[in-house]
Design a protein around this nucleic acid. Sequence first.
DNA 1: TAAACTCCAATTGTCCGACAAACGGACGGA
DNA 2: TCCGTCCGTTTGTCGGACAATTGGAGTTTA
Lengths: 272, 272
Amino acid sequence: MTADDAARAALGERPRKAGEEGMSLRKLAVAPTYRVVAETIEREIMEGRLKPGDRLPSETALADQLGVNRSTAREGLRLLEQTGLVERKSGRRLHAAVPGHQELSSRASRALLLQQVTFIDLHQLLMVLEPSAAALAARAIEETDLRHLEDNVERTEEAVARGESVTQLDLEFHDIIGAAVGNPAWLMAREPAANLMFPAADPMMNALPQAPKRLVDAHREILNGLKRRDADHAELWMRKHIVDFKRGYELAKLEMDQPVRAAGLWSKDQDQ
Amino acid sequence: MTADDAARAALGERPRKAGEEGMSLRKLAVAPTYRVVAETIEREIMEGRLKPGDRLPSETALADQLGVNRSTAREGLRLLEQTGLVERKSGRRLHAAVPGHQELSSRASRALLLQQVTFIDLHQLLMVLEPSAAALAARAIEETDLRHLEDNVERTEEAVARGESVTQLDLEFHDIIGAAVGNPAWLMAREPAANLMFPAADPMMNALPQAPKRLVDAHREILNGLKRRDADHAELWMRKHIVDFKRGYELAKLEMDQPVRAAGLWSKDQDQ
DNA sequence: TAAACTCCAATTGTCCGACAAACGGACGGA
DNA sequence: TCCGTCCGTTTGTCGGACAATTGGAGTTTA
C-alpha cells in the first residue's frame, strides 16, 4: 500500500491502482490529493464543524490526520488560503474564516478586467444598482455612517478646492452607501463594478474642469436626502450623478466601449 | 546567500536578513516566497505577457527561472489555480486563463452563505436586478438565446405537468436572461445571489400547489415580451415574478430573515 | 499518404527528510 | 505582578526521489 493509497483511504476515497484484475474501469476523475485535502477542510468549515475563528491544526498534525505528506497538505492549504476560507491571525497560525467581500470583489474586478469589460458595461450595471442603493440606504443607514459620509463630503470639497484627485474619495462615498444598505449580497454585487468604474472616471475628471464640482454637489444632495431619510431625493440625485458619469465621459471624448484599463490601485491590493 | 535570498533576488525583492548593521527597519511585510511567485505569474498574465491559452512553463522550469524550489513554485501555482487565472487543459498542463464567472460566482455564493445572507437580502438585490435585466435583454437578446428560453419554458411546463421540481429550470431561465444582457459585470453581479435565491425557493414550491403554475405563466409572459422586443412588458412581468417569490415565501410561512441554507447543489460543484 | 501504434522523455503528483527563522509560552528573576 | 530569557513548535523553504501519466516523436500499417 503506497502512501498515496493510505491518503485516499483516510479521506474515504478508493485506491486508484491501475492493474487490478476484474475491475470495472474505476479510477476516472480522481482528483489530486491536495484538492481532496482542500475540499475536506472546506467541508469542515461549510458544515460548521470548524467555526470561523477556530484554529486549524498545525500542518504536521493535519497531514498526519489525513494520512498525507505535509507538502501535500500544504498545497491544499494554499488553495483554501486564496479562497479566503482560512486566514492568518497574527502572522503564523491559520484560522478558519468567512471570506470577506474585499478579497472576493478584488478578484472579481480582476476577472472583469481580463474579460475586457467596458465602461458602458460597468455604467449599465451601476446605473441600476446605485440609485436603488441610495433609496434603500435612506431607510437603513445608521448615524455613524451618516457621519462618515459627512466627513467624506467635506474632505472631497477640500480636495476639489485644492485641485486634487477626488476619485478615491468618490469611490469611498459610494462604498459607504453600498455598505449602508446592510445587505451582504448587495455589497458583493456592486463592489467589483464600482472598484473599476469610479477610478476609470479619473481621466474624465482631469479633462473636464467643472466635473469635480458637479460631483461634490451631487454627493451633497445625496447626503441631504439620506439625512432626511428622503429616499426619493437620494435616489433621484444618485441617478443624476451616475448619468453625469456617462455624460462626462462623452464630453471628454473618452472611449466608452473599449475595455477599461487597470487603474493605479491594482498592484497594491496583493497584501491583505 | 541562502536559496531563499536567491529567490527574492531573482524575483526582484530584497533579502530579509535580520541582523544587518545600519539598517533602517526593513523586512516588515515581506510576503512568503510562494506568494511572491503567485503574484509574479499573476502580473505576467494581467499585463498581457502571458495571454489566455498560453502554456505555462513546467514546474521545474518555472522554479528554475524564479530561482526557487519546485515545492515553493508549486504552492504558488496552487494559489493561482484557485483564482482561476490558470487552468488545466486536458488534464496535465497548466495554461493561463481568464477566470470564468462560474468559479467566481460559486465562490461568492459560498461566501454569502457563510455571511449568513437571508432570503430578504437576496430578494432585495434581485428585485432590483432582474426586472432591469429583462428590460435590457429585450433589446440585446439574440435568436439562439430566445430559442433556449423557449425550450426552457417548454421543459418547465412539462416538469410542472409531471409534478417535478422546477427550481433548476427556473434558475436556468433567469441565467439565460442574465447572460443575454451581454454584460460580464452584470453576470457577476447577479449570479451569486441568483444561485442562492432561486434554489432557496424550492420549499415554497412544494408548499404552494399553485406556485409552479404561476411561475410558468410569468416565464411565458417574460418570454413573450422578449420575443416582441417589448422591454416594458418583459420588465413588468419579471417584476411581478420576483414579487411573487416573496409573496409565496410569506404564504408558505417560511422564514425570510433567517440565513439561507445551502441548497442541494452545493456539494457537486467541487469538480470543475 | 494518412491512420494507428509504440515507445521514451518530460511532467506532475506525492513522499521523505532537513533546517533556519519566527513565534508562542513557560519559567524564573526583579 | 511585571518583565526578560529560553526552548519547543510551527512555518517556510529547500533538496532529492519515484511512480504514474502524458504528449509526441518516430515507426509501422492500412
